[in-house]
Simulated assay, not measured.
Amino acid sequence: MATITNFLLKQPPFLAPITKITPLYPQFSSNLLPLSSKPKQNFLNLDTNRPIFVPKATAASDVEKVKKKERVQRVHSTQEFDEALRAAKNRLVVVEFAASDSEDSSKIYPFMVDLSRNCSDVDFLLVMGDESEETRKLCAREKIEQVPHFTFYKGMEKIHEEEAIGPDQLVGDVLYYGDSHSAVVQVHCREDVEKLIEDHKADHKLIVLDVGLKHCGPCVKVYPTVIKLSRSMEDTVVFARMNGDENDSCMEFLRDMNVIEVPTFLFIRDGEIRGRYVGSGKGELIGEILRYQGVRVTY
């Protein structure tokens, strides 16, 4: 879990005092693809200070098999790359920097292809670093030293990057940074939270507010579960999400709620905070939601 320090202990007037619940703290561990036994290659030539990629005769055969049926756009130059980012505007852009002789690149690429088919509001780009002098220059500009390397952009700005990740973490990252169409309500300030609470006083639905940070591994890990639950429980539970470091209003809300570790899930009903769960354990989260719905849960 990530830790937030120096918070004020102030309670906002529109919410009742938080019920003290013993939080659970499962350790975060990513589910990675098995890597090859050879050391991960460093493509930065320290003598010339420019990336040197070694092509292979059997270049990316897996990539060639699926590329005709995909939404992944392959870019061949810095100009094409910048144009693709510009055209995406505020949509999420996921870029895989790969090399033709990288076994790990060929393993993860089919999963990105599957994501491209299912996430129509996300743009996916592929850069083969050893394709040409142009792609080498692009990798040098983006400071890519090892592949596969995934970079996430919004509004032409880099918002996140990862190396040596597996399919589960890739899916989690794409959902976390690009989610704009699920049943999870995105709240961006205290006023959004207050409106959400007011909207559901009449129907008495339980509100589960997922509070996290932009670059929080456990927050990313648990978010696909939040999305699934938002769909399966939509008749009785409202799910919402806030990134505490999105702006000053969100950070003030975290201080007022005495949120010290993330992810923290606040359980709200009829305008009152009934309790909270701190952690990224899927089973524990589901158990807590059921408990606040009045379902008896035995651990």
Rank of each mutant, 00 (worst) to 15 (best):
S132V: 02
V185D: 08
L138H: 00
I165S: 03
V193E: 02
C189H: 05
V184W: 11
D192W: 00
G172Y: 12
V185W: 05
C219Q: 02
C189T: 09
V220L: 05
I165C: 07
L206P: 00
K137W: 08
D173E: 12
E131S: 09
G166D: 01
H215T: 15
A202M: 02
C139Q: 01
E145H: 09
G155S: 09
R190A: 10
M156K: 12
D168F: 15
L138D: 05
H181F: 14
E133I: 11
H181I: 15
D179M: 04
T151P: 01
V187E: 14
Y176W: 10
L175P: 04
T151N: 09
L175W: 06
K137L: 11
L213P: 05
D173Y: 08
Q186D: 12
G178I: 09
L126N: 12
V208N: 04
D210G: 07
A164H: 12
E134G: 00
V185L: 12
V184L: 10
C216G: 10
H200D: 03
L196N: 05
G155V: 08
V171N: 15
D179S: 03
L126Y: 11
Y176N: 03
E157A: 08
D130C: 04
M128D: 08
D179H: 06
G217M: 13
R141Q: 13
G212R: 02
K195S: 13
L138Y: 06
G217R: 14
G212A: 08
V184M: 11
H200C: 09
L209F: 09
S180R: 13
A140S: 07
K158G: 00
S180L: 10
A164W: 11
G166L: 05
L126Q: 10
V211M: 15
V187G: 07
E145F: 06
K205Q: 00
T151D: 10
E194R: 15
E142G: 02
R136Y: 05
V208W: 04
R136L: 06
